[in-house]
Amino acid sequence: MPTKPILTVKDLNVVFPDNNGGLHVLENISFEVCPRDFICFLGPSGSGKTTLLRVLAGLLNPSSGNVHFIRHQQPKIGMVFQQANLMPWRTVMDNIKLPLELEGVSDAKAKVKAQEMIELVGLRGFEDSWPRDLSGGMAQRVGIARALIHDPDLLLLDEPFGSLDAITRERMWTELSRIWQAKQKTVIMVTHSINESLFLADRVLVLTQRPGKVKFDLGVDLPRPRKDDIRYTPHFGKLARKLRETIE
């Protein structure tokens, strides 16, 4: 039963002005996202992945083409940035509750919700720490908690687990999988890691070197919920090899 896409991207081009005719970063990107899809973009450095997410978040106007959301013009967005991007003058707790604060949620309610998120990302005991005292991975987890707290319709994740150690990263994969299934979110994630994309996504889109074009669109038909050991199944291996071959 095909569902109606909630997001349609059509012939998207992004050209940044520069001294010799402009830097073509994204070229004719088209794809659709259905509700509750988990989509991964896989691509080499500089292929315009961050730029694509910025366009989807409405932070950057494309040079041509369009991004169309059904229902509302712009959905509520939760974004995790490539660098943790915390406010150094706010404690962990205050960083996490920022989106609720801006929505005008009462402080007491925001704190309860933030505490929940802190538990979720495993940062209990660090509520009152300053960002300067966090490790890179901890800071990134604060960023993840902040992106989830206001219950966004669309999650945009820009290599969210890049700075985490392997163990924490895999724990976060499972967590994210769980959150995604429990809360029925639509997720668009950018990553360098083939394993990560296969473990999490329904669909993996591979981008080329700059200018980024969609080179390959792979449906990931692995059963859910996915456990750690799914990575050692032959089917996983086959999909991984397919992706590996397209990324050169």
């Binding site: 978040a57 409405g58 967005i77 939760g78 940035f81 991007n85 406010m87 801006l102």
Partner: peptide
């Protein structure tokens, strides 16, 4: 930092919210 503006805009902060929650403290 421009990325902090990105953060504020991604959650649709108003100009005043950006002034008081980002620009002033930063």
């Amino acid at each position: 930092q421009p990325v902090l503006y990105d953060l504020m805009n991604s959650v649709r902060a108003t100009r005043w919210q950006i002034l008081f929650n980002l620009e002033l403290p930063a």
